[in-house]
């Protein structure tokens, strides 16, 4: 039976504590778009994204309105570009990035991820071309995000690739110097890159994923902070175990919201539901900060650990 307090708590999460579905990300395999003509490759990729994600924003808004749960961002993640745009050189990679940018704008998603490669054990010609194309591909587009996996626990750390990526990172910063190097904010270097991450800039539709899948990123740093705050104001002396328990219960509620939205939207789109990523992802808004949680757990000094590196002024003894 529903308790009034539970209902009020859920309402409070959305209205006062910045709880939301941070991102709905549609993963799409574009491996079948590879071909010998780069114009055809770009057109096939755009058409497939249009067919599968064309109604993502519209259906997402309907789902959001039905449950009164805000969905902040709609995104698309595609198969690593180095796999399906190989054989066309760095200029071909740049054309693919521009094609992805255009179709993302057309269907109304804010980012499209997947300008990616995995080079942890070695680098193919296509991987090298993608890394070389990064400054122009990400610097000249608005909505394209990229990632390169340079290391893994199974393969080790590819230092040559790290240096090549670092040089491209510098060039990308220069290419977007008028915006304080903003292009680099759309690019992630990974170790052990996940295949199903819905958060940008690192979202990629990895190998082993289905043809098309909905992944959800929920977030609620504000909810967790307020939960810890309430605990501290109601308990005389909460222990760290009490705080952990409170965070656990809050994460449970937030995750259920993500699962509800994910299943509903997957049904409407006619694609499988993949995963809920329950990362606490902050925004610059007040009350939506992981740092605030650490401060709440650390008292006035706001330490983020048991010893050094507080988020506030140094603690004075005596």
């Amino acid at each position: 039976m529903l308790q009034t307090e539970d209902i009020l708590m859920t309402l409070r999460m959305f209205q006062d504590e910045n709880c939301d579905v941070r991102t709905v990300t549609l993963g799409i395999s574009l491996l079948d778009c590879a071909g010998p003509n780069i114009d055809v490759v770009c057109k096939k990729a755009q058409q497939k994204i249009r067919d599968l994600a064309g109604r993502l924003v519209e259906l997402g808004r309907r789902t959001s309105e039905r449950y009164g749960i805000p969905i902040v961002n709609y995104r698309v993640a595609v198969s690593p570009v180095s796999l399906w745009a190989a054989g066309h050189g760095a200029p071909g990679m740049i054309r693919v990035a521009k094609a992805l940018d255009a179709v993302a704008r057309e269907i109304g998603v804010d980012f499209v991820g997947g300008f990616s490669a995995s080079v942890e054990k070695g680098t193919t010609d296509a991987d090298q071309e993608l890394i070389a194309a990064l400054p122009e591909a990400l610097g000249s587009t608005e909505r394209v995000c990229g990632a390169v996996n340079v290391a893994s626990s199974r393969a080790g750390i590819n230092m040559d690739a790290i240096l090549a990526v670092s040089r491209s990172l510098k060039a990308l910063a220069e290419r977007t110097a008028d915006r304080d190097g903003f292009g680099c904010a759309k690019f992630v270097v990974f170790a052990n890159m996940p295949d199903d991450n819905p958060f940008m800039a690192g979202a990629t539709h990895g190998i082993g994923e289905p043809e098309c899948v909905i992944n959800i990123g929920v977030s609620g740093p504000g909810v967790v902070k307020r939960a810890v705050e309430r605990l501290r104001s109601t308990e005389v002396h909460p222990t760290l175990g009490d705080i952990a328990e409170e965070i656990k219960c809050t994460a449970y509620r937030v995750t259920r919201i993500g699962e509800l939205i994910g299943n509903e939207l997957a049904g409407r789109l006619g694609v499988p539901f993949g995963i809920v990523d329950l990362s606490l992802a902050p925004t610059p808004r007040v009350g939506d900060s992981v740092g605030e949680i650490l401060q709440m757990m650390g008292g006035r000094t706001g330490r983020c650990g048991g010893h050094d590196g507080g988020l506030g002024p140094p603690h004075r003894c005596g």
Binding site: F199, V224, A251, V254, P282
Partner: peptide
């Protein structure tokens, strides 16, 4: 604690699932 609560709530937890610390995106 976030991982434990989430894993109990859903059998489909994946991605990164933890806490992000993006400096410019977090005012504190």
């Amino acid at each position: 604690a976030v991982k434990k609560g989430g894993a109990f709530a859903s059998s489909s937890v994946g991605g990164l699932s933890g806490a992000f610390i993006p400096v410019s995106e977090d005012a504190v």
